[in-house]
Amino acid sequence: MPTPRVLILRAPGTNCDLESAYAFELAGGKADSVHINQLLETPSLPSQYQILCLPGGFSYGDDISAGRILGNQIRHHLQETLVEFKSAGKLILGICNGFQILIRSGILLADDEQGEPATLTWNASGKFEDRWVKLSVDGHKSVFLNGIESMYLPVAHAEGKFVTRSTALLDHLKAEGQLALRYKSLHQSNGHVPYPDNPNGSLADVAGVCDETGRVFGLMPHPERFVDPTQHPRWTREGLQECGDGLLMFQNAVRYFAN
């Protein structure tokens, strides 16, 4: 199996780049960390890679709003590069801040006449929160979620509430299987997922969204924070799993290029 190369894009304030690179390597990929300035200087750089990962953090401090400034940089200078990357059948993963950047840049969901059709805005709780959530996979669209039914992963964000401009868009994305990852209730519930199981108040309990090809995927939870069994919050009670739930996502990405 060829070893896919992963470009981990970092910018001022990115802070999950090392563990994201580690997760890809654990899954069998070869990861390089590339600074945004380097990419702006050499926009052809991604052609040497199969996977682009936008890791978590606070790019440019999340000043103005989360992911906005880097999202705009991509819009202004890298749109063509990424469209090309996408249409070459390659994979793009945005985790947490990376998801916010994908939404702001228009790479994940195409603009409508008023601009970005959806957003990740302030948590309904009004604050940053770090907590573990149960997730269920809806449909088979996302390459990254292939064969996964549910996962248990941590979220750690202040701006993760998924909102669309229109109900029609939400329905459309749902029908197309693009609302690929959802927060799930820990307890019995009749469809409604209450806080904190839905940690931010996202519409339709959306935790992750993929594009129409399933090869571009953004999610608020952090799969790279559960690749080793000792990262589970209750391993001292429940024993050590064979591997972390999040590792499967990175393995899916790497395996995608084996075929």
């Binding site: 999950c16 090392l18 563990e19 997760a23 907590r131 924070r225 919050p233 209750r234 009670r237």
Partner: peptide, 22 residues
């Protein structure tokens, strides 16, 4: 505690909050 990211860098082995309901 929840307002602090206590898991970034990916090395968290025992968290500040523990137990059946974390």
């Amino acid at each position: 505690i929840r307002q602090y990211d206590h898991e970034v860098q990916g090395g968290s082995a025992i968290k500040p909050l523990v137990g059946v309901e974390n």
